[in-house]
């Protein structure tokens, strides 16, 4: 896949897809979308970048190992469940805070941080698989 067109478009496409994946993740709270599908979109973005520029370029671009991203996501998801110990409610109960940012009320919830955790797990795991498969092909 070494055509000039693809190599020119790939960075823009990757950036757009990652942006869109975050949009899908945040939208998922009340509408179709969510962490799982968002994570899949982000993982395909990395895969496209990898097809255009090679696996090493992707590994450089995301800095940490994809498995570490998945681990961080899993940790975030469990911690989102565990914070309810301080509120005296059972594991995984949704808790809300309403901080005010520049006069706008922003509702934040453990439901959302859990979903971000799911997003990271999916991004990490699928990217890790995709990169491993592409790497084998080059040998």
């Amino acid at each position: 896949m070494n055509t000039l067109i693809f190599r020119t478009v790939a960075p823009f496409l990757t950036a757009l897809m990652i942006l869109f994946s975050v949009f899908v993740l945040l939208r998922g709270h009340n509408e179709p979308g969510g962490g799982f599908i968002g994570g899949l979109i982000a993982a395909s973005a990395f895969a496209i970048y990898g097809i255009a520029y090679g696996v090493a370029a992707v590994r450089r671009a995301i800095i940490v190992h994809p498995m570490s991203i998945a681990g961080a996501g899993l940790l975030l998801a469990v911690v989102s469940g565990l914070v309810s110990v301080f509120a005296g409610v059972p594991f995984m109960t949704g808790l809300w805070i309403y901080p005010s940012l520049f006069g706008v009320e922003v509702p934040l919830a453990t439901v959302m941080s859990f979903d971000v955790g799911v997003y990271l797990v999916v991004v990490g795991a699928i990217t890790s698989i995709a990169l491993a498969l592409e790497e084998r092909e080059e040998d």
Binding site: S68, G71, A72, L74, L75, V78, V89, P90, F91
Partner: peptide, 27 residues
């Protein structure tokens, strides 16, 4: 209200997932 002792029910799997996630991060 959930008493603190009830958390023992969920703690074994939660603890293991937390440790597993930490280990994945420092693989």
């Amino acid at each position: 209200p959930t008493v603190l002792g009830d958390w023992l029910v969920i703690l074994p799997p939660a603890l293991m997932i937390t440790a597993g996630a930490l280990l994945m991060m420092v693989r």
